[in-house]
Design a binder for these strands. Structure first.
Lengths: 282, 282
DNA sequence: CATGAGCGATACCGTGACGGTATCGCCGCA
DNA sequence: TGCGGCGATACCGTCACGGTATCGCTCATG
């Protein structure tokens, strides 16, 4: 099976619409229809049910979507890593570490410091990512190692080491009634009419519907909280970034967040191994 | 990058010879040369160093070989799993369990028995494999779950659960001088002039050079041992298959063998999960 | 009930990517 | 100095892939 066929199928399976999928792929609809039915013929299996008004996945289609995404990621990763290996061999070698912008900054600073002090350490390019983006960078080979957060990020298929487990706090504007409390329940903050939860962009760049403000960055969000427009639920360590206008209140029943360092299981990079070892010594 | 290009590159990188690689791929040498140099141009990186007398891998080439193999496996796995999902949706669903022929037979029997007794269990197709073959079946999606043996099999990239850890014994012909001993050192049996270790076929079907007999199956090997032509070093549980003409002697310093059940980390199969749970309850 | 719009499939056509044959250029070796 | 081995290049044919036009079906709408 060619990656072109897989890309085509994944596009249709995600859009569930040949026209839109074709547009996304930058080709016309007829060749896409043909490519898919040819793929189905070669597999000897129906992947999509065309219901003349809607397209749905068959069982086999759902499996191919799931496995196909992983396969496309692996191909892309091979390409990126080879390219980066060539650059490393030519110039100064480096590793790319993906981390969520604004999260675990203290831990990250200690990690980078500890690693840089090691003999044989190389430059670390830190990629500051939006929520969930680190995972994609790591799966597609644009990053070599990442700081992820269980249970928010999907760790399946990665090797990981746990670095830190912490509770979560609500970040509220100073002076808000809830700031007098010493502890909150999750249900008390998820549905406040005066402080709706912010909306993060989806992977496709669009925002989900809802009353909350559209978030682009952490610093922007903190400002919005100061203005009394929203609130945020984040791991405990974010307290270090608080200003006078922000108050953190622990949420008793929020799930614990574990910060982990993750890397692809077949990584052979000396630098990645050293980074992980440095992280474990913190 | 297309899988065709990756297949071509992997073939050349493994053979380190354009002519042989082309032959293996079933195409002529010139289009292969062209495809590779085009790939190099698109990556913007040299993958191979043509030394007019020999071909060697660059740093980037070594990375692409390693990552590319994994990517090709993933694509093949997507294809196989989709095909099998279609069959399962049509007829009776089943899982394929890969296991080394002649190993862990007792444990396997118990596992199959325990799983079959579960509600909602499906047929289990047991694939009996040559040494190391289970891993490939699992990586390429021809199997859903496998019984592997640490440290012999490469477990990177799989989720695993340990089932059993045991020492190793030497299987010797009855009457051999060493059978009087209660314990042996590994070094005492690996280089016996009268009992050379057997040779297993490589992945490409050829046999390595050496004095030992060429092995095709376990039963055949046991017969060769009875005839005093070779010996075998295997996990302790193989004792259950001994006959009168065979004697097992523990090897004190042989590495412990851990039998594990392994599956792809992104498996969503209910049957695989049930099998693993059944295995853990043994 | 007729009409139109939306959507996937089909028919048909052009082009360029891929593969094959012939040959070159380079190097090591007898 | 010729020969053999190997990868690169030149040149050519074909078929796979993509584009345009259109069909056939179904549902929404007046």
């Amino acid at each position: 099976m060619e990656t072109r066929e897989l890309r085509y199928f994944v596009a249709v399976a995600e859009e569930l619409h040949f026209g839109r999928a074709a547009q996304r792929l930058g080709i016309a609809q007829p060749p896409l229809s043909r490519a898919i039915s040819q793929l189905e013929r070669r597999l000897g299996a129906a992947l999509l049910m065309r219901d003349s008004r809607s397209v749905t996945l068959t069982e086999a289609g759902a499996v191919l979507l799931h496995e196909g995404r992983a396969a496309l990621d692996a191909v892309e990763a091979a390409e990126h890593r080879a390219r980066r290996a060539a650059l490393a061999a030519a110039g100064r070698p480096s590793v790319v570490l993906a981390t969520k912008a604004g999260a675990s900054s203290e831990l990250l600073a200690k990690l980078l410091h500890a690693y840089a002090a090691e003999p044989g350490s190389v430059d670390v390019d830190v990629a500051l990512c939006g929520p969930g983006e680190q995972e994609r960078l790591l799966r597609t080979g644009r990053a070599d190692v990442a700081i992820l957060h269980h249970p928010f990020d999907d760790l399946t298929g990665f090797d990981t080491e746990e670095l830190l487990t912490e509770g979560q706090v609500a970040i509220l504007p100073a002076g808000h009634p809830l700031t007098t409390r010493t502890s909150l329940q999750l249900s008390e903050v998820t549905d406040l009419p005066d402080l709706p939860l912010p909306r993060w962009p989806e992977n496709d760049g669009t925002y989900p519907d809802g009353p909350g403000p559209e978030a682009q960055s952490h610093s922007q969000l903190f400002q919005l909280i100061s203005l009394g427009r929203t609130l945020l639920v984040v791991p405990d360590s974010a307290r270090s970034q608080l200003t006078d206008e922000l108050v953190a209140v622990p949420i008793a029943d929020a799930p614990a967040v574990t910060t982990v360092i993750a890397w692809p299981p077949h990584s052979r990079s000396r630098a990645v191994a050293d980074l992980v070892r440095a992280a474990l010594r913190l």
